[in-house]
Design a protein around this nucleic acid. Sequence first.
DNA 1: CTGAAAGCGCTTACAG
DNA 2: CTGAAAGCGCTTACAG
Lengths: 339, 339
Amino acid sequence: MAVTIKDVAKQAGVSPATVSRVIADNPRISSKTKQKVREVMEELGYFPNFQARNLVAKKSQTLGIVMENSATLAFQNPFFPEVLRGISTRAHGSQYGLYLSTGATQEEIHREVVEMAQGKRVDGIILLYSKIGDPVMEYLGQCGLPYSVVGRPYKDPETISYVDNDNINNAKETVEYLISLGHQHIAFVGGATDFVVSLDRMEGYRQALDQHGIPFVEAYAVNQELMQGKEREAIRQLMALDVPPTAIVTHDDMVAYEVIGYLEDLQIRVPEDISIIGFNNHAISKHLKPPLSTVDISIYELGLHAAELVLEKITDESVPPKQVVVSSRLIERGSCRRL
Amino acid sequence: MAVTIKDVAKQAGVSPATVSRVIADNPRISSKTKQKVREVMEELGYFPNFQARNLVAKKSQTLGIVMENSATLAFQNPFFPEVLRGISTRAHGSQYGLYLSTGATQEEIHREVVEMAQGKRVDGIILLYSKIGDPVMEYLGQCGLPYSVVGRPYKDPETISYVDNDNINNAKETVEYLISLGHQHIAFVGGATDFVVSLDRMEGYRQALDQHGIPFVEAYAVNQELMQGKEREAIRQLMALDVPPTAIVTHDDMVAYEVIGYLEDLQIRVPEDISIIGFNNHAISKHLKPPLSTVDISIYELGLHAAELVLEKITDESVPPKQVVVSSRLIERGSCRRL
DNA sequence: CTGAAAGCGCTTACAG
DNA sequence: CTGAAAGCGCTTACAG
C-alpha cells in the first residue's frame, strides 16, 4: 500500500488537512509545521495521488493530443514527432502531461475524444490536423472543452483558436519562385483534398498562375484522390503529356523524394531536366542528392503555439479565440534550376 | 456541471450502486433494470468520470511512455513514431491510454517517471531506450511498477521484460555481407556509446572481422563521442587514412544519409567508390539515390511487443520476466557494390 | 436482484 | 495557524 496523506499526518502529529496545505504551500501554515511535515513526507516517501487530487480539483493537468492515425499518414511523416516536440516543451513548462489518442479509424478517434472530454481525462485538446467535415472538430466545437487546432479549421475559423502557416501564400511564393527561374509549365502534386492545408496550397498555386497570366492546366494539378495510390503511374502520365511540366511543386518533402525516385526511373534528372520543390523541410532533405529545395514551415513552433493556445483557454475560458500564423520560408537548395 | 451517477440514479429511480453495476454490466442486475438505466444514461448523456473510477479501482488504464527527449535524438528519428504506432495499436486493443513523458533532461525524465509511478498516473511504463547507468531504469527496477523496455537492458537483462533485435548478429551479418562482396576495409560509424544498441552493433562488427581474420583498425571504428558533433570532419579524416575504407556501416539510415552527403562533397561516389549500408530502414531510404541498403529491424513489432509485455505484467504481476527477440533482415538496395 | 454504507486519497470552506 | 467535516464521483463488500 502506498503511503497516503493520512500516514504522513499521523506520523507528523497533525491533521490530514494540514498535510494537504503543506503540499499546496499554503501561506497560513507555520514554517515550523511545514518543515516537520516535509521531513515526514521525505522520510515516508510520500507522493500525492493524482487521481484523488484531480478528482476534487476537477482537473487533470493533462492535454489530449488527437491525431489522424491512418498509420502511414500521421506516423510515417516526421511532422508528427516535431510538432509533438513543440507541444511537449510548452506543456512541460506548465506542468501539464500529454495524453495520446490511439484510435485507428475516425470513429474510434471520435469516441476517444468524447471519452477524454466527458471522462475528465484531459483539461484540453490539441487537434493535430484540420480536415473538412470532421466529426471530431464538430464535437469539440460543441462540448465546451478548451481546444486548439494545428491548421486552419474549414468551418468558422474565427471562432476557434488555431495555429497555422499562411499556406496559400507559401504555395504562391513557391510557384512564383519557379516562375522567376523561368518556368511556365509547373505541376502541383498535392495531398488528400479533404485536408484544408491541401486546399490552401492548391489555391496558392492557382493564384500564382493567375497573377502571372499562366493558364491553369487541369492535368498539371494532381492530388491524392486522383492518384489512388498509383503515384508512380501518375508521374509517368504527367511526364508523358504533350507539354510535360518543367517543374513540380509537391506538398511534402516525403512526396518529393518519391517523385524524384519515379522520375529517376524514367531517366529524367533533377534538376537538369526538371525542377522539384518540397514542403516541410524534413531533416534529411538537405542531405539528399540533389539537396531538396523546400519550404520550412516551422513545425516546432506550430506545436509550441498550439499548446500555448489551449493552455490559455484552460487558464481563462473567457479569452476570445485566437489565431496564430507561424512564419515559413523558402529554402533554396539544389533541386531547382533556372531555365 | 457534468452529469454523474447520482443524477442517473435519481432519474431512473434506482440507487447509485445499481447504476454503477449497470456500467460494469454486473450479471446480478435484471435486464429490465439495466435497460431502464441505460436509457437514462443515454438521455442524460452520462459518461463515467475516469478520475473517480480509477481512484477506487486503483488503476488508471494508462501506459506511460518514456523516451529520451534530447530533442534531436528521439524526435528527429522516424524510429519514435513507428514504435509508438506499434504500442498504440496494442494498447488501444486493450483499452489502455498512452501518457507521454515530456522531460528534456535526464533529471526531469526521472522525476516524471517517479511521479507517474507513485502518483498512480499509469499502470505500467514502457521505456523506449536502454542506456548504461540509467537512473530511470534503476528506479523502475526497484519501484515494483510493471514495465518493459525496448532494447536490451545493460544490467540483469534476465530479470526484466524487454524486446529487442539481435543487434550483435544483425551487425555481424551486415559486415559479413560486405565481406562477401569482397570488402576488407570496412568502417563502422556508430551511435552514442552509452546506448546498449550501439555497443551491440559494434560488438557484432568486431565479431565479423574476427571470424574472417580481418584485423580491427582503431581508426575505422567511429562513434558519436569520438565525432563530438563534427561528423563532416570525422568522415574527412576517415577517408584521408592511408588505407581508406571501401565500405561503411552506419548505425542508422539518417546517419547514412549524412555520411553520403559528406562523401559526395569529397567527390567520393556511392556505391562506385565506396559502399554504404544503414540500419532501421526508414520510409525514405528506398527513394534515395542510390537506394540505401539497410537492415529492417521491424520497429512496429518492437512497439507491439513492448506493449504486450507490460500489459502482461499488469494483468498478472507474477508472470516471470520475458524477453522477445524481433527479427530483422538485410535489405539489399543500391548503395553497396561488389569489389 | 437491489440498496445503504463505507471508503478510495485528496481538498477546502467553516470554525475556532 | 490548525482541525473536523463534508464532499469530489465512483465501487464494492455486506445485508436483505
